[in-house]
Design a protein around this nucleic acid. Structure first.
Lengths: 343, 343
DNA sequence: ATTAGCACTCGATTCGAGTGAGTGCTAACA
DNA sequence: TGTTAGCACTCACTCGAATCGAGTGCTAAT
């Protein structure tokens, strides 16, 4: 067990060093910087074993060794020691969650910006609102123009959706209010997803054709139920030596500009609170040399907030996980304060 | 005038060729491809003159010549012949403006995507709503949660703003409606910018402290009055040889990720409908080797839509201007149909 | 089991020669 | 006088050979 323990330590040292330098690491480096009791020859033997076991790759004969995806997997599953955040870092995160002091941008944008500036990786923040779970609590029609009204839906969880409708004839504010009252009474508690159907049922002309207009003009809420997606710090990727090849950089950046692809990268989260996917585990050809760390938080109104960081597989997992942990804590604090409402 | 005319033609040929190839162009190239009546030696003399006049630069003695910013200026001001768009291209643009057929993304996003995919440059689309010009037409309060109400402001031009308020005590829908009526009556026609002041005046407790809450909690609408900003096709930049240097690419991409900077790049528009800014005219150190073409459209509700394309100074100005022109025409058509309302 | 020692590998760097596109100048020409 | 042929010269770029050096694997001694 002792020798196994040593292999383990050596592997860890290799990964640590490679994450730091992005250079293949050689036996002498380990012997000098990490395991001074052992000669480089010994390390060499161990490294040879580790390669056989599939934890190391050698780019070519006379370069050092590079951790394999299997090694990274072991690393995040078992080797990670928590990296304590500096006081400044913690403060920085907390500041980004302060009440609505600096209203400059919405919370998602602020999270994306600060995470990518702290970690130097690329950050994506997504909010999904499972439409099916939300139910109508209040409905209100407001005049906008001659034959246009604004339809406002407030759900039981307190979130608000709005949509402009074209209506067959002009209606006064008072009339619209009366209709709003009737419809609210009849439809309260209806799941949002059933709303168009229920409205179509009501159908008739008695409400000035409004119910029909509403049924027909309901926005079929995007493809998915993603309500917000912000990506920040894309240009950070260009600092990594693995993307000094412009073509590689372009391929990845282009994925990160495609909303659907980003959503799918963030979504593959097996309902874990925090998930780390390494290389091919990201599930996309273009990101087979990347790792993605995602954290999901369920808001009290049923929406799910997912924060993802993407970078080369040689990622500072320790740091990233600590930062995400702190973000999670701050976020929960904020949610407690505000009763689970975001924005 | 004849000789001047020839210089002019040669300069144009040089610019055309350089825009196409990004390679310094030599006298022989011009003589073979553009002015077969003249020998390379003659061209050489002319080029020497053109350099003296400040229209050409030579990277070093034995490379060809490269157009200067002054040359590009002349080119867009006087040399541009309209590039007719292909049927496919026109169709492509029109498709992106089709009514609300594919609701997949909002109009700005669609414009940004299609423009950057057609031109291979980076596109930014911005909508500004000059707050000062807008006046209140209708105000409505809707219950959201126990002590939270949604404030909806409809302006004379038919645009809608919403904002959630914390209120001192719970209020029923009917009561809120009554208050809405009173406030609408009193505040109709008030410019949005004066609203907080007017509300503070009303102040008193008679409305359940609502007016005060509203005065205090009015969102101070961002720094500027920019209501939407979408950037698309950033990764296109990486295809240009001028950005094969990763550091240059990073500097520019990083600008294009900073909302404020993009806004300022789009804003420097001297109220012209279409403006072309070349190199340093873009007004930002990081973009001194770029050109920016912007087009602005005033919507009938007073908002201004600005579409900008950014790329190396060696930009396909002809193509870009044609495309933007077509976009303008399609946009106007759409606006006519919908009475000037976007979204 | 560990290590010193050594031969060997192979990418990266350096250097110099050669190449070729391009210029500027001069002299001849129409 | 404007145009052109010719030529010397410049200078980035390419290519191959030589060199360097970090690193490996193996063997034999401790």
């Amino acid at each position: 067990m002792d020798i196994v323990d040593r292999k383990y330590r050596i592997l860890q040292a290799i990964i640590d060093d490679y994450i730091l330098t992005a250079l293949p690491v050689g036996s002498r480096t380990i012997s000098r910087k990490y395991e001074q009791k052992l000669s480089s020859a010994t390390i060499r033997n161990e490294m040879s074993d580790l390669e056989e076991l599939g934890y190391l790759d050698s780019p070519h004969t006379s370069a050092g060794r590079v951790p394999s995806n299997k090694a990274y997997r072991l690393y995040v599953d078992q080797m990670l020691r928590p990296v304590p955040l500096s006081v400044e870092e913690t403060a920085f995160i907390n500041r980004c969650f302060e009440r609505r002091s600096h209203q400059v941008a919405d919370l998602s944008t602020r999270i994306a910006r600060s995470l990518s500036s702290m970690t130097r990786y690329t950050t994506a923040v997504m909010t999904r609102a499972p439409r099916s779970e939300q139910m109508l609590s209040h409905l209100q029609l407001v005049p906008v123009a001659d034959r246009r009204v604004l339809l406002i839906l407030v759900t039981t969880t307190g979130s608000v959706r709005q949509h402009v409708l074209d209506v067959p004839r002009a209606m006064a504010a008072d009339e619209l209010y009366a209709v709003s009252r009737i419809l609210t009474a009849r439809l309260e508690g209806t799941p949002l997803s059933d709303l168009p159907a229920r409205l179509a049922q009501l159908g008739g002309e008695e409400l000035g054709g409004l119910a029909r207009a509403m049924a027909e003009q309901q926005p079929h809420e995007e493809h998915s139920d993603v309500s917000a997606l912000v990506v920040g710090g894309r240009s950070n990727l260009l600092s990594f030596p693995e993307y000094s090849d412009v073509d590689k950089a372009k391929a990845l950046l282009s994925v990160l500009e495609t909303r659907e692809k980003v959503v799918s990268l963030l979504s593959h989260n097996g309902e874990m609170e925090i998930s780390v996917r390494i290389g091919p585990e990201t599930g996309m050809e273009e990101t087979k040399d990347c790792s993605i760390v995602t954290a999901s938080y369920r808001l009290s109104d049923g929406r799910v907030n997912t924060i993802g960081l993407i970078g080369p597989t040689r990622m500072q997992y320790g740091k990233v996980l600590s930062v995400l942990g702190q973000v999670g804590r701050s976020l929960n604090e904020l949610l407690d304060e505000t009763g689970g409402k975001l924005e």
